[in-house]
Nucleic acid binder design. Structure first.
Lengths: 199, 199
DNA sequence: GAACTGACTATTTTTCGATTCTGGTCACCG
DNA sequence: CGGTGACCAGAATCGAAAAATAGTCAGTTC
């Protein structure tokens, strides 16, 4: 398996899956666009499902890296968190597969990959976890936080914000404002004065 | 239009829509189960869509009332909020139509009713708004909150929690715990000490 | 004569079998 | 030996016939 061919296959597969979805994208088509024979695709991945997973993994890692790159641990973590959400929001249009993954859209078509999708979601939570840890380190965030649990909640909240605007008028300004409101709420909390942290 | 018949029609329609969804539920069937002729259904609602909306409105109002009944304005609002979420969670199984409404599931089948669905969602936010106002009144919640905006965020967060567990193993314990975590997070906020409220 | 009905119609949905398309394999090529 | 594409069984798709459905309204009932 030549590396360049593998690269080409994954890259073209990504485009096809994004444009047509898992079902309608055909292996024949992917092979043709990648400039290889169909058999070669089956050297890169054991099945169409595996190919899809491979593509998704690549996408998530890439998305992850691009977000992680923007995290400067010396800046205040509360700013980092909001900016992380806004950056993620901005990349969603270029990463439809990631968006679908977050929204759980693939579950209906490929319920048997549920566990793997969950893994990928966990990978996607890593930048959030990192920012939370930075915040605790900086003494800005409550040290008693269960960072994994909180990260999952934040990712859910972020996803919900995205979901309820997809397919609607989707004024990007509105979306950004909602994201800011939501994260401001989470950062400051509802209560007037944060109760003294007890063990 | 005799009141008892209208009642029977709406009640049976609710069951049918819940069991089969809007498309597969047939007006003939609803009429038969309600013990009336098909024409009578069209005295209760001008069309099948209107009937669906009428049923949904009834469901949301009922759901609303049952939640509102539990709100004792003398109790601490932070407790009220978490309990509200848990109560809502507990009723979801008995109110599949409301759950679908929250999750936006009807949008795909009836996009032309989007605006009405949004109205219904707003109605569903009323108990949350009430608790937020109680909290401000009690001096427990920040008085600068935009209660409508915050209520929508909380409803989204609640919905997200529900969505990501529907169709999965759905251990109810886990769901309750996640809800508690999420609302505890929102109540206390991420930051260690709430910054002094500025204008 | 107002409340109610159900046969009727135009339109949708379903069925089902023929046909095309697709995932996956493997004997063969360069 | 990395790579290929003709090949196969099963899945998706299509089209036309058949069944079902939303909505109407002349007529029945009380």
């Amino acid at each position: 398996m030549e590396a360049a061919k593998r690269e080409s296959i994954l890259s073209e597969a990504c485009k096809c899956f994004a444009k047509l979805g898992f079902q309608k994208a055909s292996v024949d088509d992917i092979a043709r666009r990648a400039g290889v024979g169909k058999g070669t695709v089956y050297l890169a991945a054991a099945s169409k499902k595996d190919l899809f997973y491979e593509v998704l993994l690549r996408e998530v890692r890439d998305w992850n890296a691009s977000l992680q790159k923007r995290i400067d641990p010396r800046r205040p973590a509360d700013q980092l968190l909001t900016e992380l959400a806004l950056s993620s929001l901005a990349t969603m249009d270029e990463r439809p597969l990631v968006r679908e993954l977050l929204m759980g859209g693939h579950h209906e078509v490929l319920p048997e990959l549920k566990d793997r999708f969950d893994e990928l979601r966990s990978i996607g939570m890593k930048p959030i976890v990192e920012v939370l840890e930075i915040g605790i380190e900086q003494g800005r965030f409550r040290p008693d936080l269960d960072v994994d649990e909180v990260a999952r909640i934040l990712l859910d909240l972020h996803t919900a914000t995205v979901m309820f605007v997809v397919g609607r008028v989707s004024d990007p300004l509105r979306l950004a404002r909602r994201t800011k409101s939501a994260f401001d709420l989470v950062l400051r909390g509802l209560t007037l004065h944060a109760p003294p942290t007890k063990a």
